[in-house]
């Protein structure tokens, strides 16, 4: 899957939690969930659960630690998908 395809698939997942809709429209690998999208920290776990469901992967706690940007989320999902 291309990076842009991942980004397009992540956008609707992040939409309900993103308080900065402008930043959401300009999503890049560098976009930070907290600093840019202003997602409430308690909702980061919802993002992880939604990503697990959308891509049918299981994100272990060690991977979750890094899942604070769009790029990190893509890398984690890619790694999980390619390891099976």
């Amino acid at each position: 899957m291309e990076q842009q395809a991942y980004i397009e698939k992540l956008k609707p997942i992040l939409a309900p939690y993103a308080k900065d809709q402008e930043a959401l429209q300009h999503l890049t690998r560098e976009t930070s969930f907290i600093r840019d999208l202003k997602i409430n920290s308690a909702n980061l776990v919802d993002v992880v659960l939604d990503v697990e469901e959308a891509f049918d992967v299981e994100i272990d706690n060690e991977s979750m630690e890094q899942m604070l940007t769009v790029g990190a989320a893509i890398d984690i999902v890619e790694a999980k998908l390619s390891s099976r």
Binding site: A42, N43, V45, D46, V48, L49, M64
Partner: peptide, 17 residues
């Protein structure tokens, strides 16, 4: 706000926190 934004009874939610 927390009650509105987060469903703490969502499956898997507590286990990640």
């Amino acid at each position: 706000c927390a009650a509105e934004e987060s469903d703490w009874q969502r499956k898997g939610w507590l286990q990640k926190l």
